[in-house]
Simulated assay, not measured.
Amino acid sequence: MVNHQLKVVQALASALTAGGRGVSGTAFPKQPEKSLKLYEFEGSPFCRRVREVLTLLNLDYEVYPCPKGGAKYRKIVKEKGGKLRFPFLIDENTEIEMYESKDIIDYLFKYYGKSGKTPKKYSDYPKYPVVAFAGTLINGARGVWINQKIIDREAPEQLLELWGFEASPFTRVVRGVLTELELPFKFHNVPKERWQDMGPAVLRLKPGKYQPLKGGKREKVIEIMGRDIQVPYLVDPNTDVKMFESAKIVKYLEKQYG
């Protein structure tokens, strides 16, 4: 348990290096009809840039983890795009397949943003993501390499589902394990939609009973969770498991798929 809490602290420090990116998002996303597919790995600073924008736009998407040493999804990227470079986005709604984090970010704002234009904050990324790379190192380079014990293991029949948001340190720890176990999953973004959402579930800035923004995405998520918003939340349709708490989720994943 102490080791898990240390990982959470490292993940929190890593999130702070992003200066607030990956925390907030629109309450009313333009969710595409067909799910976006992102081939990436948690520890990549370039992939992190894209995940931050996906959180801002509050888009759900499928993740196909491509850790270094992985055999399942890296070869798919090579077959489809001709090279091993990440992130790699597939959007079946527009029949687009693309590399390069900056190009993907511009594309996401164009098709799923409100104005169709990339905000200056996200258009002026430096060529080399030094800050995001520092965040990866602070986080112990988790989510970079595959867990050698699971090589050649079959992927689950159905995608796991994870609710969270990019900057959540508890969610980051779980995503790191999913990457290292090469487990594909659908990520449901649940970013903060307004200031009343800020803070952990048990200590939000606005006191009293939590009320999500009416008609917003969080209101619908509460119905799914059957309680107040708390992330991460994992659903494994392969075993009918539904659970909260990052430490419990990590333990479950390592026992079931490790």
Rank of each mutant, 00 (worst) to 15 (best):
M98W: 04
S246V: 09
I76T: 00
K255Y: 07
K7I: 04
G143D: 05
A132T: 03
P45A: 03
L16R: 11
Y125N: 03
H188C: 03
N189Q: 13
T55I: 02
M225E: 02
F109P: 15
K186Q: 02
K80Q: 05
P169I: 06
P200K: 11
L178C: 06
A15M: 04
K255F: 02
G199I: 10
K186D: 04
G25D: 12
F28H: 15
Y128C: 05
G82Y: 08
I90K: 09
G22K: 12
P207G: 06
R172L: 13
K214A: 00
Y64C: 03
E182V: 10
Y61W: 01
S123I: 05
A18E: 13
K220R: 02
P67D: 07
P200C: 08
L6K: 08
A141K: 04
V173P: 11
E42D: 11
I96D: 05
P129L: 05
S101P: 03
V174W: 08
A134W: 01
E40L: 07
S168G: 06
L54F: 00
I90S: 10
I96W: 00
E154Y: 03
E254D: 11
R227P: 02
K78W: 04
L162R: 04
G22A: 12
M98D: 05
K192D: 12
V2Y: 07
R204S: 11
D236E: 14
K75F: 05
K214E: 08
G81N: 03
P65V: 07
K209S: 11
N189H: 04
V221M: 08
E33H: 14
